[in-house]
Structure formats: C-alpha cells, structure tokens
C-alpha cells in the first residue's frame, strides 16, 4: 500500500529524515515511536506532501506508484489521509463545510441528505458535540475536541491509508474506546494505518503488525509489539548508540 524507499528529507536545508524504509501492506497497522524531535511529525507531513519538506533522495510509493512529486490534494485523492497533531484554526470554515467539499473532491459525496445523516451518526460515534460541526474549524476547540474532529474526518473520508499523528493525546477513555473500534473496523475493511506516537499507551487500544523506533530521523529498530513494551520499560536511550 505505502512504501518508503531510502527516504531522505530536508527542511530549510536541514536533514530531518535519513534513509527511511517502510513497507505498509494492505490492512496493516504500523506504529512509529520516538522521542520528541525524532522526526515523527516530519515523516507524517512528508508522506502527505507538505511543500516545506523536500525529498532529496529516495521515493514514496503509494499502491506501487511514486507520489513524491504530487501535491497534497492529489495524494488525498489517491487515498492518503493525515490526522494532524495540531490542526490549524480556520475562521468561518466549519467542519461540515470542509467535509462536504472534501468528499466532493474525493468523488465520495453521497448527496446532501445522506451526508448530513452520516455526519451526525459518526459525530456521535466519536462523541463530538453537534454544535462544533458548524463552528469555525478548531477555533476554541479543546485539545480533545480537535482530536475528535480529526477522527470524524477519518471516518467520513475513509481513506485507504491513514496516518495518525499523536491521535491519542487529550482523548478520554470513552474516546479511546471509540478509537479502538475504528482501528478494528479499518482492519476488517483491509484499510491501513500508520500510527505516530510518543507513548505506548495507544497500544492498549490497537494491536500493531509492526513497531518502528525513529530517532534522529532514522529508523533504529523494527519489531512487533514487544518492542513497544521494551521501550515502555527502558525508554528510548537503549537505541541511542
């Protein structure tokens, strides 16, 4: 589904990712763990196509096609999605408006009535207050509300591959349970996930196929969920040498 080949990325002339290799197959869940400043968010933004992140060597393949030259909207239309760690505030643009346009541009808009029904249903599922659906995006949203808004978008857009950047921070237990259900449903539908996280807590809610440790822009170790346990016990220091 998504393959990173020897990916090296610079921002403002500084290397933030070095020779990163990753191969996420259909229906798989991969987790990237790493300390602050390791390049986790850079990885997410690079895959999604943020213009500040320049790929200097290597490639990004999505469904066996190189997407590294494509602008973000074309990657989205192919089926990539990023749940942002800190989504921006946009005055006067509501979640409802954005999602309607987004679904239209992805050729997935089911018509107004069905869209509104679906929106209500899924908002209930992630426990996002209906009032927020019509408010300016992220303006005055709490940390948890921002995450729930990202999850709602994930549910409605239903991408082939979802990158989730620190999605669990600020979520309460109920929302984490909802998150767990989302992961399960995606697995059943053979949709892939790339979870980016600092803490291993999220692993209580999802069983990953692979765990990777990212430090200083490099993948230092890969394994299964036992690797995450090890990090929980001993921290990231063990990978520093």
């Amino acid at each position: 589904m998504l393959e990173l080949r020897d990916l090296t990325v610079k921002i403002d002339g500084h290397v933030v990712l070095k020779n990163v290799n990753l191969n996420i197959k259909q229906g798989q869940v991969h987790v990237i763990m790493g300390p602050n400043g390791a390049g986790k968010s850079s990885l997410a933004l690079t895959i999604m196509g943020h213009p500040d992140y320049k790929v200097v060597s290597g490639d990004i393949l999505f469904e066996n096609e190189s997407v590294k030259q494509l602008p973000a909207f074309e990657r989205a239309r192919k089926g990539l999605f990023l749940a942002f760690q800190t989504p921006p505030e946009i005055e006067g643009v509501s979640l409802t408006t954005m999602l309607r346009h987004s679904l239209k541009s992805l050729n997935k808009y089911p018509g107004y009535k069905q869209f509104m029904q679906e929106l209500d249903k899924q908002a209930m599922l992630v426990n996002l207050s209906k009032k927020l659906l019509g408010k300016s995006l992220n303006q005055g949203f709490s940390g948890g509300e921002k995450k729930r808004s990202e999850l709602l978008q994930l549910l409605l857009l239903n991408p082939k591959l979802a990158i989730l950047d620190e999605i669990d921070s600020g979520l309460d237990v109920d929302a984490l349970k909802a998150l767990s259900n989302i992961f399960r449903a995606r697995k059943q539908a053979s949709r892939s996930c790339l979870i980016i996280t600092h803490y291993s807590r999220i692993l209580n809610y999802v069983k990953p196929d692979f765990v990777h440790v990212l430090i200083n822009g490099e993948i230092k170790a890969s394994g299964d969920e036992h690797l995450a346990r090890k990090i929980e016990e001993q921290g990231f220091k063990q990978f520093l040498k």
Partner: peptide, 22 residues
C-alpha cells in the same frame, strides 16, 4: 496545506479560507 490534504486544490483551499474570513 490542511485543506489540500483533504483533497481541495490550492485555489479551492484559498477560496474557502477567504470566504470563511468574510
């Protein structure tokens, strides 16, 4: 970038931001 990551072109994203502003 946020709006383009949701499938909107850059121009559509800009229009949406401006319409939101007013």
């Amino acid at each position: 970038f946020y709006l383009t990551s949701r499938g909107l072109t850059k121009k559509e994203a800009l229009a949406m931001i401006l319409l939101g502003f007013i």
